[in-house]
Amino acid sequence: MRLLYFAWLRERLGRAEEEIALPSSVRTVGELMAWLGKREVPGGALFGESGVIRAAVNQELAGPETRLSEGDEVAFFPPMTGG
């Protein structure tokens, strides 16, 4: 699974993207965030802070209940500030 990061989340994690093997226990966006939050990487704890990080699955905005499949592109980012 391809993960993408944007804005300050990208800076805090020190990378714009990565490939992961989706653990079989992870079926939703919320479960993926919980799993990512437990990794001991710089900025990893940000995933555990509820409400801070937004997600998109295959370029569509997604919620914690959104289901995941192995080939998905999942993006994480702060609240958007366009316009």
Partner: peptide, 26 residues
């Protein structure tokens, strides 16, 4: 313009005269 600000994937970063920069908070 209201929906572009909050529902389209853009993020603004401001660069200040003193050389620092900060992401714009929602």
């Amino acid at each position: 313009i209201d929906w572009l600000k909050t529902k389209a994937p853009f993020w603004k970063k401001e660069h200040f005269a003193d050389g620092t920069a900060a992401w714009v908070a929602a």
